[in-house]
Each structure stands twice: as C-alpha cells, then as structure tokens.
Amino acid sequence: QEPLTASMLAAAPPQEQKQMIGERLYPLIHAMHTSLAGKITGMLLEIDNSELLLLLESPESLRSKIEEAVAVLQAHQATESTHKSGTATF
C-alpha cells in the first residue's frame, strides 16, 4: 500500500477514512501484539484522523501509542479482576 496522505484521506467519505487508516494501522499493530491487534486498532481509531496520520508517519510515536493502549487495557483488566475477586491481584 502506498503511504496515506491527508489529501487521499480528505478525498474519501468520512466513514471510509477510518477504514483506510485502520487497514494501514492493523498490520503494524499486529506485528507487535498479535492477539490484541483488533482491540488496539479499534482504540487507536478513536483518535483524530490528523493525529492518526502523524502516527502512521512516525513509527516511534506509533509504538509508544500502542504501548499506551496495552497499558490501558491491562489496567482495565486488573480493575475488572479486582472488582470480581474483591482483592488486588498485582
């Protein structure tokens, strides 16, 4: 796939823009976190398109954002299990 530019994105209808970005993000995330790729991609797609284009252009920023998403998921799962068991499971 050729790199996604702001003009390519602007030329697509809004609902297709997220699809175009998601299709480029997913393989990059899948390479880092296979089992969570679908969830992490969904979480990142809630970011503004302009910021998502920056992420696609900067592997370093993308990596740190992916790690942030994993941390958010893990923290959420930890609180979930705490609620269920009533005790901290750290």
Binding site: G22, Y26, G38, T41, I47, E51, E60, S61, A69
Partner: peptide
C-alpha cells in the same frame, strides 16, 4: 516525534481489515 495526547478508551469496538477477522473460521 509528535506526541499524540488523545485519550484511549477500552470501550472502543475491535477493528479488523478484510481478511483478518479471527472470528471467521474457514
């Protein structure tokens, strides 16, 4: 590198490109 400040939500729906959806078993 640009710092992206948007917050991430665990409630976001999962996203799979065509052909990647693990929920479809061949």
């Amino acid at each position: 590198a640009p710092v992206i400040m948007s917050k991430l939500s665990v409630n976001a729906p999962e996203f799979y490109p065509p052909g990647y959806n693990p929920n479809f078993t061949d």
